[in-house]
């Protein structure tokens, strides 16, 4: 029996040492902090992975898992561990690269969530709350539309990424909010077959801040003389 046990033990050790997990671990350390997926996205990712594994099983499932999000929950824990001791935290440039990676992978909603969590100005700075709300609304909008990779990043996301890239060290919360609102309010972000019904990009959404609600106030002017 000892021989049989030794054989099983050797097989299991070999499996453990050769698992994709080791690669995932190394990737996690190399990347430092990874996108924090919210509960909604985590659940979706786990469900997707489970469905894929069930459908294809075996190595197909394992290979998918290496790139999928479910093992990411473990990576998230590892990231926490490393950041706790100041390892692997690449700062805002790395966070932005992660946002880009998510968007390019067809996960624009997750990208915006990650930007919300990791890039916005400090909460006490003007516009930060507005930017947070607008980014999350845009992420929610994208999630509702269930945009796939084939649809490409929704309109307005590229503008937001450009702004973030060019102003990474000095982000203005209100500027981020405006760009995010453009994404959330842009109906052309929907599936291609939908007819855009939103305002054109260059028309500001809602009344300007300095215009009070209500009927327009008559503008006084010189009396018009009639002949």
């Amino acid at each position: 029996m000892q021989d049989e046990f030794d054989r099983i033990a050797a097989e299991l050790r070999s499996e453990a040492d050769g698992t994709v997990f080791a690669d995932l671990t190394e990737a996690a350390v190399a990347r430092g902090s990874r996108p924090r997926l919210t509960g909604r996205f985590r659940r979706r990712a786990a469900t997707t992975t489970a469905a894929f594994v069930l459908a294809f099983g075996g190595l197909g499932g394992v290979a998918y898992a290496a790139n999928g999000a479910a093992p990411g929950d473990f990576l998230f824990g590892l990231d926490r561990a490393l950041e706790a001791v100041g390892i692997g935290n690449g700062g805002s440039a790395e966070r932005l690269a992660e946002v880009h990676a998510l968007v390019e992978a067809g996960n624009a909603g997750q990208g915006l969530e990650h930007a919300t969590d990791s890039l916005l100005p400090a909460p006490e700075l003007a516009g930060s709350d507005e930017a947070r709300d607008a980014l999350l609304a845009a992420a929610e909008r994208i999630a509702q539309l269930s945009l796939g990779e084939a649809a490409g990043p929704p309109e307005g996301v590229a503008d937001l990424l450009t702004y973030l890239s060019e102003n990474l060290d000095d982000l203005d919360g209100q500027a981020v909010a405006e760009l995010a609102k453009a994404i959330a309010g842009n109906e052309s972000a929907g599936p291609p077959e939908e007819v855009p019904v939103g305002p054109p990009e260059d028309v500001p959404v809602g009344p300007p801040e300095d215009v009070p609600p209500g009927p327009p106030i008559p503008t006084p002017g010189p009396p018009v003389s009639t002949p």
Partner: peptide, 28 residues
């Protein structure tokens, strides 16, 4: 990492990834 996760799987951890994350946190 492989040994840690293998152990957790064999021992029936309900969330081997999460427990592995906590394990590495302690190790660090």
């Amino acid at each position: 990492s492989g040994r840690v996760v293998g152990f957790l799987v064999v021992r029936g951890a309900a969330d081997p990834e999460g427990v592995a994350g906590d394990t590495f946190l302690d190790m660090v």
